[in-house]
Design a binder for these strands. Sequence first.
DNA 1: GCGACAG
DNA 2: ATCTTGTCGC
Length: 231
Amino acid sequence: MYAEEEKFAQIQNDLRQKISLEDSFSADALKTVAGVDLAYWQEGDTERAVCCIVVTDAASGEVIEKKQCDGMIDVPYIPGYLAFRELPLVLKTVGLLENEPDLFIFDGNGYLHPRHMGIATHAALVMGRPAMGIAKTYFRVDKKTDYTEPAEDAGSYTDIIIDGEVYGRALRTHKGVKPVFVSAGSGISLDTACDISLRLTSKESHIPIPTRLADLETHTARAALRGGAEE
DNA sequence: GCGACAG
DNA sequence: ATCTTGTCGC
């Protein structure tokens, strides 16, 4: 039903050689962090989505800028190829930003991916900016490697190792709450990605504040958009 | 044919 | 992701 997988895989296999798992910035140079998220809806027989990016202060989580962009979605969701579905709209939204964030946080995986090319990594390489991924549910990369449950305390984690390589981490951001799955995108290390995940997590959300805010924005934006332009 | 499956 | 009621718990 969809014949693009091979082309998509080829594109990612070319791009993956540019991945860097080292920090391209120093901790004190991290001033702003952007959360990225999308919400979808159906309009007649076409699928539409709105992308919201919320730029926050890296230390306080205070909002610095919000931008959004909506448009048609023409690629279906295929596990392993999320980037091709969401990136076009994401890149348009990034183009609207007046600030250049020091780091982008994506909803989904980065290096924790069959080709190490989850949306966070793919986006980082296309944008030429550091990005990391944080997924709310586990993506079983090789169909057999499960993750080991981290201890119940906040901050505990377990490495997700496949064929001897660390792909990402199951990170408990809140005590007793199910873990999130952190992985590098590019231009950032897994350690730093986990540090930032914990620093930007608050009492209200087990995911980083910029991501949480982008998620909320996306829902209110959709409510306005799908009630407004048609009928 | 049946289950798996980031968002 | 999205569609959805009630329900359990702090």
